[in-house]
Design a protein around this nucleic acid. Structure first.
Lengths: 362, 362
DNA sequence: GGTTAGCACTCGACGAACGAGAGTGCTAAC
DNA sequence: GTTAGCACTCTCGTTCGTCGAGTGCTAACC
């Protein structure tokens, strides 16, 4: 799945051209006008619209028509049917976004401070922050937003604590350098006192502290032999830890916000389609797949089936990453119709990504 | 807002009648047939349909027509326009549900065991169980389901524990007889050792254990004076507990499942309407209001605007309660189109309500 | 050679006209 | 009290013609 090959593409176009045709400055201007208009209206754009609504050097519609025909041949435009206007292709959007990235768009001061205001909070729990970030971005863009925390795999354990919540059940709280896992329960011997649990917690913390989640495994067996006394408890704790380690490859905290925003756009005015989309949002694995991948990139763009989900055929996904603490990377993804307001989205992601990184490291 | 006045209504109808007309056995049979058909098809039901598809004693369509006319006069039927069939009114649905409750519908053994299977789990955390229950009901009914845990107000504290999760932050875990609250953070003095926190936790537990959440207040100030040593910590802890107590009036764990199920039904084929509905599901207060109210009733039925939400104008909400432990009541609510499959919904709620009560008490 | 005016052509959207079908209410007869 | 018969109403789907937006091509223009 090639998600980002614009550079090569530009080379190809600007140098060889296709069938003698070349992409030039003017074509680019026209293409941009078409994309801008289509993003705004979702209506196929005709040559006259361009001459009337956009400044492309006082050319006549006939000339625009010729250029559009060329752009179609070059693969940047599609025509739903003869005698309809043109709509941008995925290739066009990609070029468009690439050019936006060059003169990276800025948010208005007002909007930026609004966004930051949404994120400003005393809260330091990763989960809550992630949720807030998702809300903020979804609110600012009017698209669906998915935010993922860092992968658990390479976090370092800071402490482990067991807290009794029922006669035979304890909550295991695993604190790492980047997140707190507090949703695992283990069963305990009802005869253990809170002190016993505290001691066991201590021991666990002493032995595991500083280790990567990914190599707790080696340690666990050693622990088992050390703690002859509480064998049964330890067994279930180790099981639980093992489970966490196992899931760690894929485990990431994920928050979704603004799922229903998609219903704003005519692309999803069909309820069956909307339903499929919304259901897809509920399957964590799919979302994870969407956000995983090119983590090293500042931005990632996937259009249509490149998302890997047929439910998002008419969508595009823009992802950006932020730092959690040290070098853990989290990801923010915005999902909207392919004719997304890329400029705005990129600037929002820029702003929130930065704020989030600062917030989580400072 | 009277949500349940069927008894009086039946009295009224069966005795006085309206304008000389009376509700009789035959009218009732016809009304049921109409409701059954409309629930199934969502198409206004005509007199011929009744004679063909339902057994109403070999009457002709003309007779049915006369009866339908009467039923309309009595307020049980509406007519979208002349020359269309009739659709049941809210009053009709209420009567229908009341009669269903009399010979309380049973789930097939297969379905019942399937449902119970979904709920069977080692998990004892209230939140998780609630989520599972919501999923199970939503899956079985194909309607949106909301499940709420008991109100926090009259739970009894079992223990309080502080767990350090960052240098200046601790997680406060409040265990009560019915639920575990594990989402409150308090800031702590970085110089406190884990032992110190443990001791403070002990103290808190000793003093608060057995108290109602609703009257922790009195205790808190006393505690403050006792613990001269850790004044600052205690202050924030007490703040946090105070917050919990304050919110307790309204705080309930709430899980929603199958929100998008509504998109299955033609009543919500309009995206704008669907969007409004789905957004409403995201505001906790609205949901809480929906589930609160007649907690003493086994079942509650609200139709249309009685739900208190304009977004659910075409919906009905059926709620049932279950026991959490001792006498705490939780609530399950099913939200679907007004022409809901009430029989099925009631039997599912019956089954899940019972299972859940058993699970949480046994 | 690039640009543009002019023109014929295509195709979807929209609305009017129309018939079919479902349903009603009324009347008169059983 | 029940029902057959009938006139009437209203919605829905279809057809058909018109309108308008948009295209591509050609020929003229600078």
């Amino acid at each position: 799945m090639r998600t980002w090959f614009v550079r090569e593409l530009i080379m190809e176009i600007l140098q060889k051209g296709v069938g003698g045709m070349e992409m030039d400055e003017r074509k680019l201007r026209i293409l941009h006008a078409i994309i801008d208009d289509y993003i705004l209206t979702a209506i196929p754009v005709g040559s006259r619209t361009i001459t009337k609504k956009y400044d492309v050097g006082g050319l006549s519609s006939a000339t625009i028509r010729n250029e559009m025909s060329d752009l179609e041949a070059l693969g940047y435009l599609d025509q739903p049917h003869t005698s309809a206007g043109r709509i941008p292709s995925a290739k066009a959007y990609r070029l468009y976004v690439e050019s936006l990235l060059q003169n990276s768009p800025q948010l208005s001061a007002l909007e930026a401070s609004k966004l930051r205001g949404h994120l400003r909070t005393r809260e330091r729990q990763l989960g809550e922050l992630i949720r807030r970030a998702a809300d903020a971005v979804a609110g600012a863009t009017n698209y669906t937003t998915v935010v993922a925390g860092p992968k658990a795999l390479d976090m370092r354990v800071k402490s482990v604590q067991l807290v009794q919540v029922a006669s035979e059940t304890a909550l295991m709280i695993l604190v790492t350098d980047a997140a707190v896992f507090k949703d695992t329960t283990v069963s305990v011997d009802p005869e253990l006192s809170p002190e016993d649990l505290f001691q066991v917690s201590r021991l666990l913390t002493d032995h595991l502290s500083g280790r990567l989640i990914s190599d707790m495994g080696g340690c666990l067996n050693a622990l088992l032999s050390v703690l002859g006394e509480h064998t049964r408890l330890m067994q279930t704790v180790l099981d639980a830890l093992g489970r966490i380690e196992l899931e760690a490859t894929t485990t990431r905290e994920i928050a979704v916000s603004g799922g229903t925003n998609i219903l704003h756009y005519p692309e999803y005015s069909d309820t069956a389609k909307a339903r499929a989309f919304l259901n897809a949002l509920e399957t964590r694995e799919k979302l994870r797949a969407l956000l995983t991948g090119s983590q090293s990139m500042a931005f990632t763009l996937r259009i249509g089936l490149e998302t890997g989900m047929s439910e998002m055929e008419d969508c595009a996904v823009v992802t950006a990453s932020y730092q959690v603490s040290g070098d853990h990377l989290g990801t923010i993804g915005v999902i909207g119709p392919a004719r997304m307001r890329y400029g705005h989205v990129l600037s929002v992601l820029n702003c929130v990504g930065k704020s989030l990184s600062e917030l989580l490291n400072g």
